[in-house]
């Protein structure tokens, strides 16, 4: 890791001290089985640390409520029929309502109710939680922030005047490389079959299956973008067409043969 350290020092020398602005505060939080990375701008260090504590709490609470790995979580108990919707935290109903929306918008390619073992909102929850963590930072008065967790990004503001946040899209077959770059104004989610194997379930068959190796969706809501990216990874071109018909959302698909497809409204660099 020595080289990475040297790189960090070099970047610091280049980027230190934007006039009149507190330095960016960064943090990583180990939660939800992954690592969530935060960048906060425009808050003093003490205020930023406090806001980041609260944002981390939001992620941990989401994990406690929705984790299917934890047999005692409210959603796990709901799936086993040990409790009812009225008895679990209200966030569960909120998430399931978003799931219904995503199912309709994706023409059924995202369908938590078609998963084996009972309703499974996992494909939307991560984005929902990351988005809520971002909103904590916004309410705390930050000028801009980026939250990146498990392949999903939520941002607000600008990293520098006149610049948009830039996200690299993970290359599907090379973990050390990018397939392209997009600018993000609110939310971007990428779902793929490349890192955790063929874990996606095709709601039309109930079996593992996918028509894309990587699917990226951008839009105003990260919760929905996350679910819709899963839909495009599973449904391929048909699901991408569905995204193209939505206001404010855009999609980018890498098919299993390496060819690519786009909706309007997304510019993957370099072309």
């Amino acid at each position: 890791m020595t080289e990475a350290g040297a790189a960090g020092a070099g970047a610091g020398a280049a980027g230190a001290g934007r006039a009149g602005q507190p330095a960016a505060v960064k943090r990583t939080v180990d939660v939800m089985g992954t690592v969530v990375s935060f960048t906060v701008l425009g808050l003093g260090e003490a205020a930023a640390e406090t806001a980041l504590d609260q944002a981390g709490d939001v992620l941990r609470e989401a994990d406690e409520t929705f984790s299917l790995w934890k047999p005692g979580s409210p959603v796990s108990r709901l799936r086993r029929g040990e409790t009812e919707l009225a008895q679990v935290p209200p966030e569960v109903s909120e998430v399931l309502e978003l799931c219904r929306m995503a199912r309709t918008w994706s023409r059924g390619w995202f369908d938590p109710w078609a998963m084996p073992g009972g309703v499974d909102p996992t494909g939307l929850v991560k984005g929902w939680a990351v988005e809520r963590a971002r909103d904590v930072l916004r309410r705390a008065g930050a000028a801009a922030a980026l939250v990146s967790g498990g392949g999903d990004l939520a941002v607000f503001g600008q990293p520098a005047p006149g610049q948009e946040w830039r996200a690299g899209i993970q290359h599907p077959w090379r973990r050390d490389a990018l397939a392209g770059i997009i600018e993000v104004r609110a939310a971007a989610a990428t779902s793929g079959t490349y890192e955790r194997g063929p874990h996606l379930i095709d709601p039309r068959t109930g079996q593992p299956g996918h028509r894309g190796v990587s699917a990226t969706v951008t839009g105003p809501s990260l919760a929905l973008a996350d679910a819709l990216a899963t839909a495009v990874a599973v449904g391929g071109d048909d699901a991408l067409d569905a995204i193209g018909a939505l206001d404010g959302y855009a999609g980018y698909l890498i098919r299993p043969d390496g060819s690519e497809a786009y909706t309007g409204g997304i510019d993957v660099l370099p072309r």
């Binding site: 960048t39 990146s148 993970q170 990018l178 397939a179 770059i181 779902s191 660099l269």
Partner: peptide, 20 residues
């Protein structure tokens, strides 16, 4: 994608669904 590396300058990575 290899070439894009020189102009990357990205703030985050989308799609890196890594474990901890």
């Amino acid at each position: 994608e290899v070439l894009s590396a020189q102009s990357a300058n990205v703030n985050g990575i989308s799609g890196a669904t890594f474990t901890s």
